[in-house]
């Protein structure tokens, strides 16, 4: 128990610290790397909760795909980050004030009234003998079917949107057209000519 608690605090600390660093780091590549660290340590938290599937998904999807994509984009876009940060100090006082007020208020909210644990119906844990993945899947396709479908629709829209905004049909681009290749006849392209010596075609 104590070990689990200790591990929890380690992961929680690392997650929070690296999240802060994502914003604070001067070099954007470092930011992305800290982001990856945050993902990995939150995956650790999921493992502690007994949600291995989510932990794996987090690592595979977020670390493996999203964050690496970010990294590529950040490296490929040659942005002068120093210039972008120029206004930072100018807004710092107001921003700090706003943040502080918000923090105080939220502290007030959470400090005065604790979460009514009795009222909270705890997230359903998987019944014994059912794996984590299976439990999640059976929930997604039954109770949360509607939301799952909606998420699908949102992703579809995202794909359509991305294509709409970026795809350009370039007439000069060469594409493979298998049908044309298959239907190609030698007679279309080849002409057999008899060439007499010394007279040219």
């Amino acid at each position: 128990m104590t070990i689990a608690l200790f591990v929890f605090y380690v992961f929680a600390l690392v997650t929070t610290a690296s999240a802060v660093m994502v914003i604070a780091a001067r070099n954007p590549v470092h930011s992305v790397l800290f982001l990856i660290l945050a993902f990995v340590s939150s995956a650790g938290l999921f493992v502690l909760l007994g949600a291995e599937f989510l932990a794996m998904v987090l690592v595979v999807v977020y670390v493996g795909a999203v964050a690496v994509l970010f990294l590529f984009v950040v490296m490929m876009l040659d942005i002068d980050f120093v210039q972008l940060r120029e206004g930072f100090l100018q807004y710092l006082p107001v921003g700090a004030l706003v943040g502080l007020v918000l923090l105080v208020e939220l502290a007030l909210v959470f400090g005065t009234q604790a979460v009514e644990t009795a009222a909270v119906d705890m997230p359903p844990t998987a019944p014994p003998g059912v794996t984590n993945t299976e439990a999640l899947g059976s929930l997604l396709y039954t109770r949360y079917f509607y939301l799952f479908q909606t998420a699908g629709a949102i992703l579809l829209v995202a794909i359509v949107g991305a294509i709409t905004l970026t795809l350009r049909h370039r007439p000069d681009a060469k594409r493979q057209d298998i049908s044309r290749q298959v239907h190609r006849r030698p007679s279309d392209t080849l002409e057999v000519r008899k060439v007499r010596p010394r007279s040219g075609i």
Binding site: I154, V157, A158, V160, G161
Partner: peptide
């Protein structure tokens, strides 16, 4: 989200 995303595009 489903209603906003297409609007952004």
């Amino acid at each position: 989200e489903l209603h906003s995303l297409p609007l952004y595009v």
